[in-house]
């Protein structure tokens, strides 16, 4: 996380995010955008279209986009999980955040920094510790919950005997009691992911201005640049 970070000088660059991580990040971001928009319109459909039913297929297209994006999200996260083991040390941070004393103190310092109570944030090569916690608890666990409940709801349509039903619906729906509660919690899960996205985008842009290393450009180029010489 912050190995030998103190030695990083102004203009130093470290290759942090490898190509598969960056490609996944943006595909995943797009999938989430599509999922949230289409998901919202599945729950609260657009105004009714007049004419014959055979003239339109609006809900059909919206649902198709939702399911397709859902598959991309699920497959993407599986691929990203593989890369946590195959990639460099920073690739692990998303799935296996550190809870060492140093990391916890780092997270506390980050909270103080966001509360305007300390003058400077710490330098981090990878994610700062607070970010790893937010990503793990809100995004990773949130996405996992959405994938499981999402496939359970999808399995209801594909029906008994389909792998989606047998692997997901068959135990998720009895676990919640009935399908309606699975729907309700799937909606709540969407809002959790939206909170994460709001915080994530805001903080990334803010850190780009105010922290001591590059932020947004790092997820594009992969290189982390440091802005000053202080430890």
């Amino acid at each position: 996380m912050s190995e030998s970070v103190d030695l990083k000088q102004h203009g130093d660059s470290v290759y942090v995010y490898e190509a598969p991580v960056r490609i996944w990040h943006w595909i995943n971001a797009l999938a989430i955008l599509v999922l949230c928009i289409t998901g919202y319109f599945i729950g609260s459909p657009l105004p009714t279209l007049s004419g014959e039913a055979s003239d339109h297929y609006v809900m059909g297209y919206i649902r198709f986009a939702h399911f397709a994006a859902g598959y991309i999200l699920a497959v993407g996260i599986l691929g990203r999980l593989y890369w946590a083991f195959a990639g460099n040390e920073h690739a692990k941070e998303l799935f296996f955040p550190s809870f060492s004393k140093k990391a916890l103190l780092g997270a506390w310092h980050e909270i103080l920094w966001y509360s305007f109570l300390v003058k400077e944030p710490k330098k981090c090569v990878g994610h700062n510790p607070l970010a790893t916690y937010a990503m793990f608890f809100m995004f990773v666990l949130g996405a996992f919950f959405m994938i499981v409940t999402g496939f359970a709801l999808y399995g209801e349509g594909t029906g008994m005997g389909s792998w989606q039903f047998e692997l997901f619906s068959a135990w998720v729906i009895p676990l919640f009691g009935q399908s309606q509660d699975v729907h309700t919690f799937h909606h709540l899960g969407m809002w959790l992911i939206i909170f994460f996205v709001m915080a994530h985008v805001y903080v990334a842009i803010r850190e780009d201005f105010m922290s001591r290393q590059s932020m947004v450009s790092t997820m594009i180029s992969g290189w982390r640049m440091f802005k000053d010489n202080r430890p």
């Binding site: 509660d181 309700t184 919690f185 969407m190 909170f195």
Partner: peptide, 25 residues
């Protein structure tokens, strides 16, 4: 279509709770 969420003494559904929280965030 959504289950009621009984919190704060007000009956809300998931999207109302989520939308309010999103506005706060």
């Amino acid at each position: 279509r959504l289950s009621g969420i009984h919190q704060f003494g007000i009956e809300e559904n998931a999207d109302q709770v989520g939308g309010t929280a999103a506005a706060i965030v």
